[in-house]
Design a protein around this nucleic acid. Structure first.
Lengths: 113, 113
DNA sequence: TTGATAGGTAGGATATTTCCTACGTATAGT
DNA sequence: ACTATACGTAGGAAATATCCTACCTATCAA
């Protein structure tokens, strides 16, 4: 409902890395995820909690392990949030193109970057 | 370059609101933006600084005013960040569709939630 | 030049985040 | 039943974020 939790969850590099690991390597138990981090296991566990609260991951208990899986749905609301900005961006690009089209053609120099 | 500053900038509701104001109402001087907030003008000014540092807004000095405008380009890197998750999301949706297709057709009950 | 306006910066109080080391709970294996 | 493993939670230290009230600078207008 509130996108605040979503944006806040994504603000931490550690949490974005967790999402990326789940995306690229699939579901994993918490411990296996934690191994990859320089930080303590409980800290990773807390980051997982933030992601859980934001609906970005879900856990499934398998024996004494807890397997986490990516839940991408909330990210689709991020895409929705983004889209008017994308429209804005495209309009600016289009306007820039028009300006360039209207420029004297004698201005053809090489541009490198 | 680093997306950390971008995500961090978007983490604050006040800053997202600033972006939205610039998107929907166009360029505005800092003071006019600040009027809309419950917080003090210097606080808004600091939020604008964070947005500036993230490349999300640019200022143009006009007399004693500073007009801010939206710079949507960094948000396009957010879209890029998002896209693999969107692909993931679509694949899950497709998989769900397949499962539903393979279900016995006798299972058509109403579901409410 | 003097005064008013626009808006940034400094310093500080308070809240929040991030990380840690214990510690608790549940499951698996013996 | 006992021990080890997996993993969360508690409590707290330290860093960072958020907000405030001064305060400073630059421009405009008389």
């Amino acid at each position: 409902m509130s996108s605040d939790a979503l944006f806040a969850a994504l603000a931490s590099p550690a949490r974005r890395r967790l999402l990326e690991l789940l995306l690229r390597e699939g579901d994993q138990p918490a411990g296996r995820l934690a191994e990859r981090f320089d930080m303590s296991r409980p800290s990773v566990s807390e980051h997982l909690k933030v992601l859980r609260d934001a609906g970005l991951v879900a856990e499934a208990r398998r024996g004494r392990e807890r397997h986490y899986r990516l839940e991408a749905e909330p990210l689709m609301s991020l895409r929705d949030w983004l889209s008017p900005y994308e429209r804005f961006w495209r309009e600016r690009l289009a306007a820039l193109g028009t300006i360039l089209d209207e420029m004297p053609s004698t201005m053809d120099e090489k541009d490198d970057d």
